[in-house]
């Protein structure tokens, strides 16, 4: 009996102590999460890229694909039927769209391309190579056809010549925007030639463009193109951008692009 009482007492003590410990460590007044982020009504979600059911970026047959529509409007799709660099990119019901096929790291290589077809309306602004570098973050565009990618208040850089084409450079600083490094201030830079014809083989010397961009972004602003451990965002993609913000942003556009890319 004595032994039983002691056990009960000891048990009660332990239970009380553990309870007190949990009580003292628990956070009080845990409030439910809410958000003041606005919910957008009546927006048809973007359809996913093929072959992935959920992602609009991903890898297929040693190629990387990326498609995106501003504001999650409309339908976009990319397919790469032969897995050898030929792709079809289509969009409809969007206000702005960008996408294409490439590689999941930025490399100082010569990229060969042939644009088989692309929508000819005025909404097409850019056909060419684009991507990201890291350390520091930079979003870059090499425009081979069209008037150039969408930039916010871009300023001029120095013109330069690569592959016997003259490129006009613009640059723009994106202040405190989301990125793979978290909210950051980073640069966008573009070199525009714009003269590529359809059904013609052309080349983009990536390293030469990057060297010119580096020079334009300031002496103390180097570009490090290494992909960090675990990082996957130094991609480069050959594709296009189209948009129409007229009519108070109520217009919607449709279009398509077919092209083939390869490493030279």
């Amino acid at each position: 009996m004595k032994k039983l009482n002691f056990s009960v007492l000891l048990g009660a003590l332990i239970v009380s102590a553990v309870s007190l410990t949990f009580l003292s460590c628990s956070k009080d007044d845990l409030a439910p999460e809410t958000t003041n982020a606005q919910v957008q009504d009546q927006i048809e979600p973007v359809k996913s890229a093929s072959p992935s059911a959920t992602a609009r970026v991903g890898n297929q047959n040693n190629f990387f694909y990326s498609i995106d529509a501003e504001g999650q409007l409309g339908t976009i799709n990319i397919t790469s039927p032969n897995g050898k660099g030929n792709f079809n990119f289509t969009w409809s019901g969007v206000r702005q769209v960008v996408g294409g096929l490439g590689w999941s790291s930025t490399q100082r290589i010569n990229v060969g391309y042939n644009i088989g077809s692309v929508t000819t309306d005025n909404n097409l602004k850019f056909v060419g190579l684009y991507g990201w570098t890291r350390s520091p973050l930079t979003e870059y565009y090499v425009c081979e056809r069209g008037p150039g990618a969408l930039f916010n208040a871009g300023s001029a850089g120095n013109n330069y010549t690569v592959n016997n084409h003259t490129y006009v450079m613009t640059k723009s600083q994106r202040v405190q925007q989301p990125s793979i490094d978290g909210t950051k201030t980073f640069w966008q830079v573009q070199g525009r030639w714009g003269g590529a014809a359809l059904n013609t083989n052309n080349a983009i010397n990536v390293g030469a463009h990057l060297d010119n961009f580096k020079g334009a972004l300031g002496a103390d602003f180097g570009l490090n193109f290494a992909t960090p451990s675990g990082g996957t965002n130094a991609y480069m993609v050959f594709g296009c951008e189209a948009y129409d913000y007229s009519n108070n942003g109520n217009n919607r556009i449709s279009g398509a692009m077919n092209a083939t890319i390869w490493k030279i």
Binding site: T35, P45, V57, Q72, S179
Partner: peptide
């Protein structure tokens, strides 16, 4: 979202916070 590459629209669609 593991298996995808980082994309801001992807995060917004997924209600990340």
């Amino acid at each position: 979202l593991k298996g995808s590459d980082w994309n801001w629209s992807l995060l917004q669609n997924n209600n990340c916070k």
